[in-house]
Amino acid sequence: MDAKQQIPNSKKILSNKSLLFFIIAIFLFATTLRTPITVVGPIISFIRDGLGISNGLAGFLTTIPLLAFAVVSPFAPRIARKFGMEWTLFYSVILLCVGIILRSIGLTSLLIVGTILIGVAIAFGNVLIPSFFKWKFPLHIGLLTGIYSVSMNISSGFAAGFSYPMATNSGWQVALGFSLVLGIVTLIFWLPILKQPKIALSPASAQAEKKQMWKVPLAWAVAGAMGFQSFLFYCTSTWLPEIFISQGLDAASAGWMVSVMQFSQIPMTFIIPILAEKLVSQRPIVFFFTFCYLIGFAGIFMEWTSLAILWMIFLGFAGGASFGLVLMLFSLRTESAYDAAELSGFAQSVGYFVAAIGPVLFGYVHDLTESWSIPLLLFIAISILLFLTSFMGSNNRTI
């Protein structure tokens, strides 16, 4: 079924209150996809000291979800075909809640198991939500993707900000467990969606089962774009504070710079999906975020630290624009919702594997060279690779 065939159903839905309710449900769902992860970083010392675990294991807590994304993503479309997208997403939130509860009990073994379950649950949302938009509202994919992206960024930013004071006042278990509230509220708002007609396997998606994405060059281009933008996001979030401290900023100011970068992404994550949907070719967006990446990284490489906030704004614009575009490519480069899910699963599997090794590789290069110069050149090199893959993926054709 193509977009034109789905338009009448979309208009019917848009004529009543279900669209508003759907937007609220999606907004809430999106908050569950990042907050369980971003609460960990600021309170990692509380977790380490509270459980008596090593720094290596504590740091691995932020890598486990990324590895889960890489492993689980290819299987999400197949499971959705069996249970339907609505029910699969509903079950994923239940699994997320179970993981949050286990992680917050206060035992090392349950902390690891809970973190794995959280990564598995979030992988389903990451993969299926873009294709869910393509099926439900083919005329409003850009708008819904923008709302979805913004809610993820806002909630993750606030979660990172509130987790430390919450851990200080109420304990790290409470800080880790707070995301459970969002999960429960999401389940409540998702119930009416389950009463709607089930998204069934269509003839087009049945053919998609026979496709092997790893044999399609366009799929690799989208996967490369996903991987390289994820590499840049997780590496900058992890290492930029250390880089700024080495250039003379105090720790508090260095941390604030990363916050500026993250919040600068928000307008781009809303605008870019809407713009990408309207453009025949998305290559102008690729030129825009590549320019922003290169300006931001060049300023940091030259150690013009007095303008650090400007470089962070450029990197925030670039990160938000590249992330927003990649989410849209899953829909724009495919013909059906389940094709989009297949592409999303493949691209995110590749992408999050690259993201998982990124911070480790970046730190290894720094230790090897005993300098931040080569790692910063690595940022620029990855930006160029992101340009090439995004440029190829933005060509007006479909898989």
Rank of each mutant, 00 (worst) to 15 (best):
D2F: 04
A3R: 15
K4I: 15
Q6V: 05
I7L: 15
I7W: 15
P8K: 14
N9R: 14
N9Y: 14
K11V: 10
S18L: 15
L20R: 14
F21S: 09
F22D: 00
I24T: 15
L28Y: 11
F29Q: 05
A30T: 09
A30R: 10
R34E: 01
T35G: 06
V40I: 15
I44G: 00
S45C: 01
I47G: 04
D49K: 11
I53H: 10
S54R: 13
S54H: 13
N55Y: 15
L57H: 07
F60R: 01
T62A: 13
T62H: 04
P65L: 00
L67Q: 05
F75S: 15
P77R: 14
R78F: 11
T88A: 10
S92R: 09
V93F: 11
I94F: 09
I94W: 10
C97M: 02
L102G: 04
I105T: 00
I105C: 00
L111E: 03
G119A: 14
V120G: 07
G125H: 05
N126W: 08
N126Y: 06
N126T: 11
V127D: 01
L128K: 01
S131N: 04
W135T: 14
W135N: 12
L143Q: 12
Y148H: 03
I154S: 06
F158C: 00
F162P: 04
M166A: 00
M166K: 00
A167N: 13
W172E: 01
L176M: 10
F178M: 13
I184W: 01
Q196H: 09
L201Q: 12
S202C: 09
A204D: 13
A206R: 15
A208Y: 09
E209I: 13
K211F: 09
Q212M: 07
W214P: 02
A221N: 03
V222S: 06
A223C: 04
A225T: 09
F228K: 08
L232V: 08
T238E: 12
L240I: 08
P241Q: 03
F244Q: 02
S246Q: 13
S246W: 11
Q247M: 15
L249T: 14
A251D: 13
V258D: 00
V260Y: 03
Q265N: 08
I266T: 04
I271L: 14
P273T: 10
K278C: 07
K278M: 13
V280R: 14
R283D: 01
T290A: 14
T290S: 14
Y293T: 01
A298D: 02
A298E: 13
F301K: 11
W304P: 00
W304I: 13
S306A: 15
L307W: 14
A308T: 04
W311N: 05
I313S: 04
G324M: 05
V326Y: 03
L327T: 08
L332I: 03
E335S: 11
S336K: 06
S336W: 00
A341F: 07
A341H: 05
L343C: 07
G345S: 04
A347D: 12
G351C: 12
F353N: 08
A355T: 11
I357H: 10
G358T: 13
G358Y: 05
G363T: 03
G363H: 04
V365R: 02
V365P: 02
L368C: 02
E370C: 09
E370S: 12
I374S: 06
L377I: 08
L378H: 10
T389I: 00
F391V: 03
F391K: 02
M392P: 01
T398F: 11
I399E: 06
